[in-house]
Design a protein around this nucleic acid. Structure first.
Lengths: 233, 233
DNA sequence: CAGTGGTCTAGACCACAGG
DNA sequence: CTGTGGTCTAGACCACTGG
């Protein structure tokens, strides 16, 4: 009685994709509504909905109530980068991971840090610098400030065997964050740690995380010259 | 008779998030299965499924058949960057967009390009370099090779008023692509176009797109010094 | 082999926004 | 006001995989 799997949402999506790629539905075109497609594909409307919704999330379709569904004119490519624990990143590449703590201090932060973390300029924060290694060669340099007002337990950690990167992700929850990617010239200090010439072009990832309205940490990770972050569309 | 909206999937998700952030469900914990949660929340199981599925896509939960659903130990942050048409990127920042074609030639490509595009080393390809401007200052330098075997119509375009970036996205479909982010030192030529010192650290985005099994284009976009790509988690 | 997530169905109500 | 997408329900079958 139950005609199961007349269509899967993936099969509907595949056919829709085919029509878009084959230019049967061109960029800007209005495509049939969910009810019509459900009838054509002999499936329930929610099945069509799921297929189209996930294409819309990917930027290939634009959907608006009443206005219907259109093929995106300029599909906005969405590149999703996985920002994992650095140790896992190294190990996933099949390399041996190494870690060296370079600096651990509690002191008043530079104003751009205290401002970013929304703490008083006189507040003393935990500052940690550490080098991550891949097969004994420098992989990334982590420069981190931790808001010890909100994360007092960080003070008890010496970060000599576990990186702040890993400890925080394990121990401190966050509800939102900002990430920025940029290129930066290596300072003399960066160059010393990463064992590269001064002013080398380094890929920098800056993160700022929050737990509700409390800042948690601000970190800059500088990758060794030549490092790439890859993804596919 | 129909008790509509006893719960929305968003409200279920919100409560699940609350429990995770409040450490009621700790990293690594097994959480109740869908049927139990549906009973607790007095909603249908697919509603719970949708809520949990989207959290799993975000990396906060790990789901496996039979094994159940666990709170991720090390939530992998997924940073989604929107790679739009450069003109739109500039205009969305409220700036005036400008465009200058710097080079257009048809010639044999460097081997790393012909290899990436999977075309014969003797094949002549279309090479375009162009500068994108924001309020009359250099914003990004586009260096592109187009596979004219698969996209012969590109030959007819002079790319003097519309960028290859924009024309391709409008005119040529692709089914998949690779994106890589890196930092590179500015060459003398880069520096001339971007009006910056040689060896400046530049953010580079390399893209390679395919239409089924045919390569479409390989492009490197170099952004002016200081450029950031931002996103939130 | 048994429990869990993955998914489909048919029907329904609802929210939003275009005309 | 009306058409479109957004979503929920209750029940069901299925696929995968851990034990």
């Amino acid at each position: 009685m139950n005609v199961q799997n007349a269509q899967t949402w993936q099969s509907v999506q595949k056919e829709v994709l085919r029509r878009i790629h084959a230019r049967e539905w061109k960029p800007g075109d209005l495509i049939p509504n969910e009810a019509e497609l459900a009838k054509e594909f002999r499936c329930a409307r929610p099945t069509v909905n799921r297929a189209l919704r996930s294409l819309a999330e990917g930027g290939l379709l634009e959907r608006r109530r009443k206005a219907g569904t259109r093929v995106a004119v300029q599909p906005v490519a969405k590149a999703t980068l996985n920002i994992a624990v650095i140790r896992h990143e190294v190990e996933d590449r099949g390399a041996r991971y190494g870690y060296q703590l370079a600096l651990r201090e509690v002191r008043v932060a530079p104003t751009h840090i205290s401002a970013a973390l929304s703490v008083g300029v006189q507040e003393r924060l935990l500052h940690v610098m550490a080098l991550h290694l891949s097969n004994d060669t420098p992989y990334a340099l982590e420069d981190r400030w931790i808001n010890t007002i909100h994360v007092p337990t960080a003070i008890e950690q010496d970060f000599r065997s576990i990186s702040a990167n890993e400890w925080l992700l394990q121990s401190v929850p966050y509800t939102r964050g900002e990430i920025a990617f940029a290129a930066r010239p290596a300072t003399a200090e960066n160059a010393k740690h990463l064992n590269c010439p001064e002013n080398s072009a380094l890929l920098a990832v800056n993160r700022l995380t929050w737990d509700h309205d409390q800042s948690v940490t601000a970190v800059q990770v500088l990758f060794a010259p030549g490092h790439q972050m890859r993804t596919h569309i």
